[in-house]
Each structure stands twice: as structure tokens, then as C-alpha cells.
Design a protein around this nucleic acid. Sequence first.
DNA 1: CTATGGCCCTGGTTGC
DNA 2: TGCAACCAGGGCCATA
Length: 291
Amino acid sequence: MPELPEVETTAALVRPHLEGRVITGARASWLRSLGGPAVAEFEASVVGSRIAEVTRRAKWVVLHLERAGRPAGSILCHLRMTGRLVVDAQPGHADREGAFERVSLGLRGPAGGTATLRFLDVRKFGRFRFVEDHLEALADLGPEPLGEEFTEEWLIRALKARKRVLKPLLLDQTFLAGLGNIYVDESLFQAGLHPERSAHQVPKDRARALHGAIQSTLRQAIEREGSSFDAFYRTPEGQPGSYQHLFRVYGREGKPCPTCGRPIKRLVVAQRGTHICTRCQPAPRAPGKRR
DNA sequence: CTATGGCCCTGGTTGC
DNA sequence: TGCAACCAGGGCCATA
């Protein structure tokens, strides 16, 4: 579920509760969440380390660890579809959410106070794993859409170089890192591009429009702490985001296009539900049309 | 290289 | 009301 804006929000809200704290214990009730090693091995890797910094890379939350002031690996957390990070100041609650806890870390603050970081994940697709070298572990990711490397010129050239359908290319994290199904649909709509166009046939001015659309969509979504439209995504504080109120096409099948009023259509592109306005995002070629 | 389909999981919604 | 089918903010892997 969570895409870049939701992960950015998660990292920002969890950061002040984690930075400077020391990990005093680790528990895992769903082994696969750890992405490989046994619980004991994971525990040995992280217990005793201090969380020096919390950052985001693409859809990953990165907890940078230190021992005796020196770098000591990282915890990489990917929320996938239903993952959440929450910090409890009090001992864990055994409510409904507690049932979805997959991993947790005990924490001690510099002043002595304790807390618990919980990784909750209904569908269990998410990951909460330790790596020695986060740069190596995340080396295959493409540029950050809000980073310096992602310029209009970069996008123009990168699109031209790929012989792929546009939407799946934008979802490919090795091409551009952080977009998911929602923000791709929203960005393509805003740029007036049909999701099934060939990347290398996108004209320069459309590529520029797409660049702007991606950045403005993500920035506005971050401002609103992401999108929430069912029980799943909540910020670590338990609040829903509010960007869903600004969706122009995603999840709006049959509702009027905000630009031209035509009903939004839903199609499937690369196995993903896809939402477009057929007028504002003209198809690459009129399929089956001849005369 | 690119594309496709299965798979990992659970829960909410829809339709008969 | 009951129940099956379908759907979901993701990504990996094997196969053409």
C-alpha cells in the first residue's frame, strides 16, 4: 500500500521517538518478516545498538545503527501493502492492533525512559530486516523522484532509452524509486499521458509535463501525510492521511473527470488496476480502428 | 531486455 | 443471511 508519501510520513513521525535510543531487545512473531535470519541472529545483530538516524530511501525506512559511535549496519523496513510502524511509550496494548504485530524492538532513551517500536502488518508482505550495508542492499533502486538526480532532462533521456509500456516502467523501482499504483495513475492523468503508451515515444514536452506532475503530486501528498481510504494505512500517530480527497482518477471509476467531466474508466495494465480519463489521456493508437 | 503469471497473505466488499 | 469470488497503496521469481 504505502508509497513514497506514506513512507516519508512514517519516517518523519517515528524519527523523534527513535533517534538516540538504544535497542534493548527484539521479538518476532512472524519469522518471514525478518527476511531470512533466525530471530536469535537478528537479535544479536541489533540489540545493544543505538539508532543514530532515521531516513527514507524509496519505499524503505532506514534505521541507521551505531555501536560505540561507529556505524553498525541498518534496519530496513518495507511496509509493502499493509505494514505500519508505531511507537508505544507504554507497555504494548493487547488490542486489535496487537494481533498484527510481527516484529518489535524494546528501546531505552538517553534519559532512561523506555518505549517499544512495533512493526504491524496484516498481510505479512512487509519486511523488517537487518543489513550490514544499506547502500549495497538498496543499490538497485533508481533515483528519488524528489532528489537532485531526477531532472526533466534525465526523464526525457531515460524514457527514450526504454522500450517499455509507460505505467509498468514508472512502477519499476529500478527505474524510478518510490512511485506506486496510486501516484502513477495520478501523475499520468495530470500529465495527460495514457498509461499504455510506449516510453520511448513520449514527446519531450509530455515528458516535461510528467516530470512536473510526479513531483507536484508527491509533494502535495507528503504535505497531507499520504492517502488513507480503508482501515489499513494510518500514520504512526494513528491518524489517516488526507490526500485521498484530492485523487483525480485513482479509485474514481465512473465519477466525472475533474477536467472534462467524462466518466473515469478503469482498465488493467500490467495486472494493476488503472484509472484514466479517455479524453484527457488519449490512447496511443485507436485500437481496432480502421477505415 | 521485456512481458506475463504465480505466489506470498489477510480482510473487506460485492454479488448471487 | 451465507458464502464464494474478487479486490487491494508491492515486489520477487520462474518462465517465455
